[in-house]
């Protein structure tokens, strides 16, 4: 039977910061980074972004993947046991907690005295009519992953969303596309001023405000059209695009603990403000899985540190 003193579930900045702190405190943490857990590569949402320019200490900027590779290396350096398997089931009803990994659900569970949940969040889909047909045939979950495929080269593409990630994806896609439309539901962006300025300056980006997508259309094989509507005038139009990318917000990855711990109405894990404490003692939450508001690499890392310190205090009180 395998027992871990403290288990971290996740692979982003919150998970690795917690691991670095716990490993340096000689708590021998085990971190399950997952194999495409929640549909995202280990490293989390940062692996789907391009340059990180707002993480302090990296004035030259670096890619999201590179930042995560560095964090992973730092966790491993201090002795974190990193396992590339996805935790698929957790039982918080008794101590020690029990957990199972994907494809081993019938096996004997792993036990652990404390868990830090840092599973993050993943991009939402719209489930438009036609989306099922053209998913991965023009509709993509990840601009950075798929941008280079031939069906997007020198073609018009669309990004839906009004935040920083929509702007960033659009800017990245101009490397390949003939032009990129950003469809914004409201009459203004939610994105930061610096991103808005970049979008304004980019001649290959066209912003359509007050615009929603109604249907994804194509030739049966590949996407080639988007039915759109202006929400002010209610006029509908066809927009010729060969690619569609969503940047419409995120859902927290809480499936493995559903019903076992208190959540906010929005589905995020409820924590005591200013801490990582949840409704279950010994079960801590850090990063985007408990934060619908800030969702930054740096705030996530900070909350990972908080969770490590909370877990350490909890474990030493148990001894």
């Amino acid at each position: 039977m395998i027992h871990h003193k403290v288990t971290i579930i996740g692979s982003g900045p919150a998970a690795h910061t917690a691991a670095i702190y716990l490993a340096r405190a000689e708590m021998k943490p085990t971190l399950y980074e997952g194999m495409m857990a929640n549909g995202i590569a280990a490293g989390g949402q940062l692996t789907t972004t391009t340059d990180i320019e707002n993480f302090p200490g990296f004035p030259e900027s670096l890619s999201g993947s590179e930042l995560m590779e560095r964090m992973r290396k730092q966790s491993a350096k201090f002795g974190t046991n990193i396992i590339t398997e996805t935790v698929s089931k957790v039982d918080l009803s008794s101590k020690p907690f029990r957990l199972w990994t994907e494809f081993n659900e019938d096996a004997e569970p792993v036990t652990t005295d404390a868990i830090i949940l840092a599973t993050g969040a993943s991009a939402k889909r719209m489930h438009l009519p036609g989306e099922e047909t053209y998913w991965q045939q023009g509709i993509s979950a990840c601009a950075v992953c798929d941008g280079a495929v031939p069906i997007f080269r020198n073609k018009p593409l669309a990004v839906i969303g009004g935040g920083d990630s929509a702007c960033e994806e659009a800017e990245f896609l101009t490397k390949y596309a003939s032009k990129v439309y950003i469809l914004v539901r409201k009459d203004h962006f939610r994105a930061s001023v610096i991103m808005q300025r970049r979008i304004e300056k980019n001649p290959n980006i066209i912003v359509l405000f007050n615009t929603v997508a109604l249907e994804a259309k194509g030739d049966g094989k590949l996407l080639n059209m988007l039915r759109i509507k202006n929400t002010k005038s209610n006029v509908e139009n066809d927009l010729e695009v060969n690619g569609l990318f969503y940047a419409i917000g995120h859902s927290p990855a809480t499936d493995i603990v559903k019903g076992q711990v208190d959540e906010e109405e929005t589905g995020y894990i409820k924590t005591v403000p200013g801490s990582s404490l949840t409704s279950v003692p010994g079960f801590f939450a850090a990063g985007d899985v408990q934060d619908s508001r800030y969702r930054q690499a740096v705030t996530s890392a900070g909350s990972g540190c908080i969770a490590a310190l909370d877990a350490e205090r909890y474990l030493s009180a148990q001894e």
């Binding site: 495409m36 590569a41 280990a42 789907t48 391009t50 990840c142 950075v144 798929d146």
Partner: peptide
Amino acid sequence: YATWCGPCKMMQP
């Protein structure tokens, strides 16, 4: 694959 692509890297091992 693409060098930007995280899922591609996950497949390498």
